[in-house]
Design a protein around this nucleic acid. Structure first.
Lengths: 234, 234
DNA sequence: ACGATTAATCTTGTATACACAAACAAAACT
DNA sequence: AGTTTTGTTTGTGTATACAAGATTAATCGT
């Protein structure tokens, strides 16, 4: 029963976000069974809100519900992850292309501001902070595309890929290369070079997803620590 | 209470699809309030499965749930629709580019088969049938991209845009132009010309979304017929 | 008569209860 | 001994009941 940590009771929308957080941070690792009753007692609520949260998360792909067989955290194969990064790259690329054409002066300022904040984090050698500011940076580009629907889609996918991207930032000095790539991207967007921005963003994202070995290693690393019984893959 | 037609009782997953169907076919028009109790009695089930279905539909954007204020069919502005078509065009384009590189012989056969089926529907002058086979055709391309995640995303968005695309097919002789565009797309994919396929698909989709006047007219037409009280936008 | 405040009603959000289906285990039969 | 069958148990799916917030209506005050 104590596989799921107990936590203070939360309100409606909060519950889903808390479960999502625990999934993307690996507290509930891929393959883990999510028992409604357990979650309910763990969060100090009844089964109903838990069920609704799980259904919501299932629609966005973060959990998998099979009828009459309960909910589990889906195991993302390396293939699947590559597919998702491939799509992410295209969405980011599109955002960049549109942003270069449509960005407003105020948004230019915010973009450069976010970029400089990243620089500070890099210089300070704080990968966690950099990771956080990196999200802000990318969101600036999404917004500058002036396509609200696209921005939503990109944000959602970005969120889903968070845990995998996060681990990648730690290895090597990815922070440095990431930042210099950012610099080129900012220049292209400000200069209004749509295709160039698109290309740069495509590579920027693909780099994170294309190395099979790194990814598989990342996956193994994420699967290892917790849920010993759920990891048997027969 | 009889704003929502009564229907025979359905089982779990079916309910969500039935509601979705009624939304995309305009039986539940944009702006309409979806009362849980009404839907429950209309479908002959309790509020619980209705609620779950609504939550699921909300995650995919087909209904809008505001906390403590119930569910409504979201009003899609012309702007919003254009945004969605813009993204759809990019996804289709990406599918085409990948398909040209990765399509297998068996998939080539299925693609051409679907294309010929469309031709038959056009020659027979059956827009409804063409519309249906058009979906099959596009799904062939999604699958041929060999990116399952991308295929899922494209399919989902395609579904959401269904009602708007459908109306567009009726006006003019869109069937003819659509079919000849399809022909060029098939050729490009079979020939392995990724960029060309991407471009053609981009235009093929954008054509449907880019004409503001047509779209706005379409929207008006959809808003007009039903739900007289829900349409008041104060 | 009009506006504000309060009461009533309605709808959502949550909890509890029950029914059925699936997985597991044990026993009987081949 | 292996396999099938049946009983038990666990957990999901649906229904109903209750509580809290929101909307509407009515009443009171200015």
């Amino acid at each position: 029963m104590d596989a799921l940590n107990s936590a203070p009771a939360r309100r409606s929308g909060q519950l889903g976000e808390e479960i999502e957080e625990r999934i993307v941070t690996g507290v509930y690792p891929p393959g883990m069974r999510l028992d409604e009753q357990e979650l309910a007692t763990a969060f100090g609520v009844s089964r109903t809100p838990v069920r609704e949260a799980l259904i919501q998360l299932a629609s966005s792909g973060l959990v998998e519900i099979r009828p009459r067989r309960g909910a589990t955290v889906p195991e993302m194969s390396a293939d699947r992850l590559c597919e998702m990064f491939e799509v992410m790259a295209e969405l980011e690329s599109m955002c960049g292309r549109l942003a270069a054409r449509r960005i407003l002066p105020a948004e230019q300022a915010r973009l450069q501001e976010a970029h400089q904040a990243c620089e500070a984090a890099r210089d300070a050698g704080k990968p966690d902070l950099y990771y956080q500011l990196n999200e802000v940076f990318h969101r600036c580009i999404y917004d500058a595309s002036h396509n609200g629907f696209l921005a939503e889609q990109a944000t959602a996918l970005h969120r889903r890929l968070r845990p995998y991207r996060r681990l990648q930032l730690r290895v090597r000095n990815r922070m440095d290369t990431s930042f210099s790539e950012h610099a080129a991207i900012v220049d292209a967007i400000i200069a209004g070079h749509g295709e160039q921005a698109a290309e740069l963003l495509q590579k920027h994202v693909v780099v994170q997803g294309e190395r099979f070995t790194d990814l598989v290693a990342t996956l193994r690393q994420m699967n290892a620590p917790a849920a010993p019984e759920a990891l048997a893959t027969p």
